[in-house]
Amino acid sequence: MATSSPSVLALNVGAPRRRPWASGDVTGIDKRPVPEIEVRDPGPKEGGLGSGVVGDAIGDRRHHGGVTQAVYAYAREDHDWWQERLGRPLRNGMFGENVTTVGVDCTTARVGELWRIGAVVLRVEVPRIPCATFAGHLGERGWVRRFTDAGRTGAYLSVVVGGTLHTGDAIDVERPGHDVDLLTTFRAFTGDLEAAARVLDAGVLHETEHAALARTVGRRVR
């Protein structure tokens, strides 16, 4: 089967909505397609602008948004993989991603990889860690464990150069010289101490994420 050229298949933005599966909280995970989005560096997770996408809602700013989670990308190919296993259609944006890609393997994207999309430059930072909001939104039993086991995490991106993205834009991928990918980083953050040591030794994470992983490892080896 022919491989599609790396490109933006869909762009998605979420309005703030009450979580029907939990009381008192809002979420922006239910994202819907738009023809274009404006991206910018949102600043720090606490005290910053939240999402790196203008007009995109984030309910829990303690755990989401900020520099290293400015934009979330998920591959259409991974949506299709999940569709087969869940036996239900998954529209673009269903996983809460801002950018639905085609022809880009988000699982093996390397930390520090640059995506040049027109004048915009995005940097691959960290994998998505599944949470209760994600599970509630999907409504799938045991979703956090299933997503973790599969390791098809998608890519959180920082905004190096801001601007406007359009549906159909080509993505030019520039990989760094190291081999630390998002799947290895995901395993590191979800309890694999060998993977964590490898990621920390490589020194490729943003300083805030490096510190967070080091703290996590420290708690586990006590």
Rank of each mutant, 00 (worst) to 15 (best):
G96S: 02
R85H: 10
H79S: 06
A22L: 04
E38F: 15
H63N: 13
T101W: 00
T108D: 10
G55I: 05
G87D: 11
R110Q: 15
R88S: 06
G24P: 05
H79W: 09
R40F: 14
G103Y: 13
W21A: 14
E38L: 14
C106A: 12
V99R: 09
A75K: 14
W115A: 12
S23E: 14
V53Q: 01
A109M: 15
R85T: 04
W81Y: 13
G65A: 11
Y72R: 03
K31D: 00
R116T: 15
W81A: 10
K31W: 00
G48Y: 08
T108F: 11
D30C: 06
T107M: 13
T68V: 14
S51N: 02
R40Y: 12
A70M: 07
W115D: 07
P20V: 07
G93A: 06
E38N: 14
D41I: 07
F95P: 00
V99I: 15
P20N: 02
V71C: 08
R62T: 15
H64Y: 11
G47W: 10
G93C: 10
E84N: 01
P35G: 04
G48Q: 07
R61E: 08
G96Q: 02
S51K: 01
G50Y: 04
G50T: 04
T108Q: 12
N92W: 10
S51G: 03
I29R: 12
T101M: 01
V104A: 06
K45D: 08
N98F: 01
E77G: 03
N98E: 00
I58W: 03
Y72E: 01
P33A: 08
D80L: 15
H64R: 06
N98D: 04
G24E: 02
L49C: 01
L114N: 07
G50I: 05
V102H: 05
